[in-house]
Design a protein around this nucleic acid. Structure first.
Lengths: 162, 162
DNA sequence: TATTGTTATACTCTATAACTATA
DNA sequence: TATAGTTATAGAGTATAACAATA
């Protein structure tokens, strides 16, 4: 029984993936036009802006954005060159790099966010009732927490032995 | 009021995007390991296998996968070279190319799908009740249909004048 | 010895524009 | 004139492995 394909699961999975793919494409365009950033760069800035002291280590920043470390280094380099973040060695752990968002980074985010919400609203939330929104938020929060708890994080490549 | 950020919408949106990003990363890996395909290639094959006569035109195939035409041409070239699809001119419209999945393509899909479902199940469905699954399926089907009806399709670049 | 982060490199994906041909 | 698809090309994103520095 464990291997049987359950049509409802399959349909739900495909509907989810296609919807998010379309949504991703739309917001990627919006972020590019409104703020000249890729969606990943936007996510990194958003994460930093939301972090306790508006700074995170590279490893913390990578987690959840599902990146290879070299990819993050590359993106951080671009964001730093654009003056949107700064990087400095951590006082707590000399190996670690502390990444912080700058005023310019916050300003850039502020330019992007209003239009961003509008895209999400017109594509994702328009066909949903308040009850749907609530249900979706509840479900996806649980799914996200479940996935975050799983081993395959961004640094998985390194943590595995074989 | 139209511009105000509604926290519940924002949280739902981010939870959705992060979850699907993690899920996408996991299934991409599974598809690569089980069938040596990218997720996009897998999607194209899955679409063809599901099509009325197991064939679609390039334009039909592109729609919903959110691709530039040249990108689809490129991927179709790879899949054809691998013997997983065939391309031939359409009898109805000489401009169109009919893409069909081969037996090898169907076999490849069959190799991938069981493991694919398992990944989706362990990451996405594990923390959900039957009721959640039903609600999520219902919601995402509506969202997908809403997005499909929107203008920004794969060929948008061409349909716009400026 | 394990972990953090960077570098160098190669590869894939995607997008733009110019092109051919059919409607 | 508009559409279907291809080509060439250039750019961005990502991953691998080897590396240096610190714990």
């Amino acid at each position: 029984m464990a291997d049987a394909l359950e049509p409802e699961q399959l349909n739900t999975y495909f509907a989810l993936m296609e919807s998010v793919s379309l949504l991703h494409h739309a917001v990627e365009q919006q972020v590019r036009e409104a703020g000249d950033l890729s969606y990943v760069q936007f996510q990194l800035l958003a994460r930093l802006a939301d972090a306790p002291e508006r700074q995170l280590t590279m490893t913390e920043l990578a987690d959840g954005v599902v990146y290879s470390r070299s990819g993050l280094t590359h993106q951080a380099g671009l964001l730093e060159k654009a003056g949107l973040i700064t990087r400095c060695p951590s006082p707590d752990d000399q190996r670690a790099t502390l990444v912080a968002i700058t005023q310019a980074g916050l300003a850039r985010l502020a330019e992007i966010l209003p239009g961003h919400i509008q895209v999400a609203r017109s594509l994702l939330f328009a066909p949903l009732s308040d009850q749907d929104l609530h249900a979706l938020g509840d479900i996806m929060a649980r799914v996200r927490d479940h996935m975050r708890a799983r081993p395959p994080r961004s640094a998985a490549t390194r943590k595995r032995r074989a």
